[in-house]
Design a protein around this nucleic acid. Structure first.
Lengths: 194, 194, 194, 194
DNA sequence: GCTTAATCGAGACGGTACGTCGCGTCTTACG
DNA sequence: CGTAAGACGCGACGTACCGTCTCGATTAAGC
């Protein structure tokens, strides 16, 4: 992902100035009010230069997010009981969605954009899958080790676990609280085999 | 809610034309791309008339969602086992999301709009709650009748049932199929007491 | 010219309120900034009522001017030498053009309007002729009495006398001063027969 | 006056297109009816570009008049008797006012515009003076050579000669005809010394 | 070090949409 | 029936950004 053959250092310099300005502006005025014109003014990089490297505001913003914290790192919870590992994952998911410089806060825009453009839909799908991969692998391991019934549909289970968090984030004023996660997990996760 | 003493019928006529156009455009191009100018053109109502009655795009959209919501019927499944009733509800939810004249198909636009406007966020919440009310009441009845454990958190359960459908609809190219619903319900719904 | 069969007193009342408001506004903000909307607001007369009685801003303003001082009275100078009578007429012409509630101050707008509309051109012509009638009759009398050469073209002479005043009013920042009038007259008026 | 270091040729191109369109429209519909939107449409130059270079309609119009004035040739009549030279000048003045690509035919628009904008008023004055300069210099030469009385006020005399032409052009349906010019001149011009 | 080609800033360009104002027409209820 | 109130479609306003485009000036690269 990182550009390797960065012959001309001017390119990288422009890139960093733009991304830094974009991140600043996202924090200050939000996605909706951010304009390329504004990024150009703030960064000191000419508008034409920005368009030379990114094709749209969305691309700049996505790049800015990724840059802001190296690909939105996914932390895999330490080994232990499924229940605890799932709780840990969901907790960090909630934290991400509340953090303004995480990709998660662009979710609403991403959802709508995906509806209008096949390209973005694919991107959204990929991102969603990568986000869910950790959870699914934890569930798979548990199914393999016998901690969960082996026939369980872990994909659907993962969606069922994340679903309520998402629904409440998108539609309700009061998202799921971190402390409600254990109850959620106990509700959804099939009883662990004794 | 409906204005009773509607002196000038032109007001109501304009209102309906604008709301219908807004709903169409929300479906077609989404919240982000919707413009007042576009609504004016599509509806045949002058821009100045729109601004005479609504002060912003968000207000128009909120009104449009509300109006569309009012036109959206809710069907309660006939009595029977919880499982069957829940399956019926989720099936119709899926059908709604695929039907172009249902509010459900505007969900992506609504999600994005809610993020940009507090007014719409409130509306989205209210609409989401009303939409889920049927499912929750079915679950509540089952809990009351002993068909489900009485201590179950039916709100969260409802979100967990709808969540996967939503997640897959919003993020994956392949939404949940109608025939997968029974499996989903069996996975999530706590075992029915014997 | 005054409306005789004024059956409904409300019409006359509206008329006066509108004209009074128009005159006020002309003095305060000038012809260019005056709007029918403004006249309606100031007068308390509904816009639709104004349009019922006048067909345009220009008409309202013209009417307002006429009303403001009864048809822009023309004072005929007392008998005496032509030279003195002509000087008196031109002096009052200059005073009129500098007075903001005289028709003369609408001359520029009238000139342009006449260029665009045959109707207004006719009006302008009529007004100009009426304005010049006094001057022409004084010259005619002088020609008849032998004070001027009988073969003189009094129409052209009148235009030549008024012309410089007009030219300077329309094109120069410094219009002809009242005290320059005698010199002007002596320059243009053919030597009076001894 | 002409910009020398015109880096981007697009600027000058836009400028000329706008000025040409403005001049056309002034001729056709006058100052009052001229709109920036109309100039943009006619010229093919975007409204935003017009506002980039001119801050108001008055400024555009002033520039347009100036530009048209620059393109307007002034012909000095050949030496000879004053009377003949003056007749020649006035004849060409009349012809100019009837010719659609001469500044003179925009006079009504200019008069109105001057009344609305100080900037244009100044311009109108300057243009009027330059236009009259030829006539005045001919009269001055005649006064110097003794052909006219040396004490004559040539400025006023020039205005008196042009005045009737202007008055009749602006207010009467029948402008002065070319063949009436000699009579006019003989009427106004002080008797030539024998 | 000296080209020379890539990259830059500055900003003009044609556009679209904004939200406002005034136009002249119209519809309604009131007196 | 004339009125006040005010909604209507319309068109222009002047502004903000869009994304594209020309420029010369700057700078890094390879000669």
């Amino acid at each position: 992902m990182p550009v390797v053959d960065d012959l001309d250092p001017r390119i990288e310099r422009s890139r960093l100035q733009v991304l830094a300005a974009a991140v600043d502006l996202l924090r200050e005025i939000g996605y909706g009010a951010l304009t390329i014109e504004g990024v150009a003014a703030r960064s000191g990089v000419a508008k034409s230069t920005i368009y030379r490297h990114w094709s749209s505001k969305a691309e700049v913003v996505a790049d800015a997010f990724q840059w802001a914290h190296g690909l939105d790192p996914q932390d895999v919870p330490p080994p232990g009981p499924v229940r605890d590992r799932v709780v840990a994952i969901l907790r960090s998911t909630i934290r991400d969605m509340a953090t303004s410089d995480r990709l998660a806060c662009m979710m609403p825009a991403l959802i709508d954009a995906a509806e209008r453009s096949g390209e973005i839909a694919e991107l959204a799908q990929r991102v969603a899958e990568e986000k869910n991969a950790v959870l699914r692998s934890v569930l798979d391991e548990a199914a393999a080790s016998g901690e969960l019934e082996p026939h369980v549909d872990t994909t659907m289970l993962a969606d069922a676990l994340v679903g309520p968090i998402l629904v409440r984030r998108l539609f309700h004023r009061t998202p799921v609280a971190v402390e409600d996660i254990p109850a959620l997990v106990d509700q959804i996760l099939p009883r662990v085999s004794p």
